[in-house]
């Protein structure tokens, strides 16, 4: 349902024929983080759980520790690099899964009978009526805080919004003439889905994927703040911000570095979403 909102026209600074420059910059930043997510664990100078300096905690930037040390005396740079796989990977995975499930359900609802559509839509709205942080909190309290549980809970949480979005888009498309034409031609449902509906709602799906990615990344960081996210010694960036919060008023890089990384990630995703949604609107 979040996807029901459309996005603003992109900024004018643009490359002729392609994405605006800012969106390209966003894509570059995102690609950088995706790279860190894959290889960060290998490249990190220290193990994320290693106590590099157990006395001089929350240390400032230094040559030895470029982003200082955290509240336990661990290397912040290494922890950010190792945490990228969660902050980038988990939203990517769960948004993808939710989108896939939403796609299957949404397209079925479009093609099936009205009763099925109504029942499914109602069920999805019911799920959606529970505030996500609170729902996640209860579920995590019940099933523990392992990564599979987190991934499942978040996926389940975002299926309704993905479903809403897919269904709305698919219904618009399915009312168009060329679908009727395909039906008249006697094409199978699968053909219609894959050759006619999917390609036409793809930009919409990508936009929605990006928006879910941002929301999930923020939700994860919020859960970490409440102590319900990724468990130590591993940490996503939100957890890094939360666990070093005491250092905030003292300007400790242990707080600001992961916060800036997180913001750069979500902003880069927003910029990419802008570019995709603009292309969608253009004929």
């Amino acid at each position: 349902m979040i996807g029901a909102r459309s996005l603003p026209r992109p900024l004018r600074l643009r490359r002729p024929g392609g994405w605006p420059l800012l969106s390209l910059a966003g894509a570059a930043v995102f690609a950088f983080w995706a790279g860190i997510a894959v290889f960060g664990g290998l490249l990190a100078p220290h193990a994320p759980g290693e106590f590099v300096d157990s006395w001089d905690t929350l240390a400032p930037v230094s040559a030895q520790y470029p982003l200082g040390t955290d509240y336990l005396g661990r290397d912040v740079l290494s922890r950010i690099m190792a945490g990228a796989k969660y902050t980038v990977g988990l939203p990517f995975l769960t948004a993808g899964l939710a989108l896939f499930a939403g796609l299957v359900l949404g397209v079925s609802a479009t093609l099936m009978r009205d009763a099925f559509d109504t029942a499914l839509s109602w069920l999805m709205d019911t799920f959606n009526s529970l505030p996500s942080t609170i729902f996640a909190m209860v579920a995590v309290a019940g099933f523990g805080t392992s990564i599979p549980v987190l991934a499942t809970v978040i996926t389940v949480l975002y299926i309704p919004s993905a479903y809403r979005n897919v269904r709305a888009a698919a219904q618009t498309v399915s009312r168009l003439d060329f679908i009727d034409a395909a039906r008249v031609r006697g094409e199978s449902s699968l053909y219609i889905i894959f050759r006619e509906i999917l390609p036409n709602i793809l930009p919409n799906l990508l936009t929605h994927f990006g928006i879910m990615f941002i929301y999930i990344a923020l939700l994860l960081s919020g859960l970490s703040f409440l102590g319900l996210g990724i468990q130590p010694p591993e940490a996503d960036w939100g957890a890094l911000v939360a666990e070093n919060m005491v250092g905030l008023s003292y300007g400790a890089p242990a707080v600001f570095a992961p916060a800036l990384c997180l913001i750069s990630l979500t902003v880069s995703m927003t910029l990419m979403v802008d570019a995709v949604s603009r292309r969608r609107k253009e004929p």
Binding site: S221, A259, L262
Partner: peptide, 27 residues
């Protein structure tokens, strides 16, 4: 659209919605 004001608003909006709420609150 695309005026300085618009850019600034867009920038601040994106920043506000990209920052975890617990961080905004503590700040």
């Amino acid at each position: 659209p695309d005026s300085v004001f618009d850019r600034l608003t867009t920038f601040l909006s994106v920043l506000a919605l990209s920052t975890p709420s617990f961080l905004i609150a503590t700040l």
